[in-house]
Design a protein around this nucleic acid. Structure first.
Lengths: 220, 220
DNA sequence: CTCCTCGATGTTGTACGCAACGTAGGGTGC
DNA sequence: GCACCCTACGTTGCGTACAACATCGAGGAG
């Protein structure tokens, strides 16, 4: 969501960026892994140039760390880092959610509700449960919500720090109760937006983040 | 303050980044100006490669916009953009200021006080007034304050969006009363921190930003 | 045996060259 | 006279080659 820089490089550069990001977020490239430019270039069938550009961007997003003449490493997120990220989210996302109430059209709300519904269906305990699908749906939901706020600076601040995917990489760490709460929050946010009550929506988002923080960061 | 990515490229790349950033913030490269890679490369006596890397980073910071096969342009900030930036600052900087109260040592406070004092001296009306020096002092003050919060994620979120220098490019737009208030706020923040009162310090920062917003954005 | 120095090796940093893409201008057809 | 197409130009995107730097290992001196 580096809005403008994202659509550079018709093909290769963008592909390298997307592939690397996915590999990191998917856990395929574990935290602390060394990323050699040639290694990645060969792996993707590209030259070093676009790979280098992709690494530069990932570094500015904070997903990798660059050390001069020593290559790049996948960033290691400590418990404190994660906690700090939740501080930022709590400072910004409720506000964004509240603003979404002023801009959301009925069509927008229908889409959000569909996502929330899908998450409830996919996340319900039982043999049909698919926690991986949940990750994508969740990402979509939050992204759309953020877009509805019509606050580009706010969205940029979040995008460049939160690494939502890192934080929301998996729902497997959620215990059943927390997961149920999380899914219910999405639906409640839509309800609040439908009611045009930004304060309510923002409050739900705060609950949502508090719940997530407890799961991911643990005891404070 | 892209902490890790900043110290890449022993010489040329970093130089290009710094020079370009300064040129943009100084107004030497006006908003909307077209930035050709070869043009900049020749101007700095470098190859296109480091220039290209610098442009990529500036784009991810939001200072320039990249259009595929069409080059880079200096970002144009609208009034709404500026307003949105202040929303982010108001959401994050008071919190950071409050946290600084927990970490600041007497030595830190002395340095902050020195900066605040220098600003009062340099900013006082009269023949000695130097509004340009004020910009650097102000940048220093806010940067140190942010560092004292010990909240890297928060600092990163701000750095990647606020472009403090863009916002604080000049104090010439301040009327005498607003300027006096602004300078007094710095001193009051130090006082609040010395008292160990994070809430107070955060409140002053909110005032500080509200005052600045009124000057820079105008009527809401 | 330990420490220091020096070389070998692999990496990143930079420069340059070619190809692809977008744009603007002139020319032609209607 | 106007609209459309086609060509020529300038730009960026990518690949490759070379140079600079950092690290690690071996060898020798103390």
């Amino acid at each position: 969501m580096t809005t403008t820089a994202e659509r550079r490089g018709g093909r290769a550069s963008e592909r390298a960026l997307a592939d690397l990001r996915e590999a990191i977020l998917e856990g395929e490239l574990p935290a602390g892994a060394h990323l050699g430019e040639v290694e990645i270039a060969e792996r993707l069938g590209l030259s070093r140039t676009p790979v280098r550009e992709a690494l530069t961007r990932l570094a500015s997003e904070g997903l990798v760390e660059l050390e001069a003449h020593r290559g790049a490493r996948v960033t290691r997120f400590s418990r404190e880092d994660l906690d700090g990220i939740f501080d930022v989210r709590l400072a910004l996302e409720p506000q964004a959610t509240a603003r979404a109430a002023d801009h959301a059209t009925p069509a927008d709300l229908d889409e959000l509700e569909a996502l929330a519904g899908a998450m409830l269906a996919v996340g319900a305990p039982g043999p049909e449960q698919d926690l991986d699908a949940l990750v994508d749906l969740n990402r979509d939901f939050h992204a759309r919500l953020l877009a509805l706020a019509h606050a580009p600076a706010l969205a940029a601040a979040l995008a460049n720090v939160v690494h939502t995917p890192v934080v929301t990489r998996t729902f497997r760490t959620y215990d059943p109760d927390s997961l149920a709460r999380s899914l219910a929050h999405h639906a409640e946010i839509v309800a609040a937006l439908r009611a045009g009550d930004g304060d309510w929506a923002g409050a739900v988002m705060r609950c949502h983040l508090g719940n997530a923080r407890a799961v991911m960061v643990g005891e404070r």
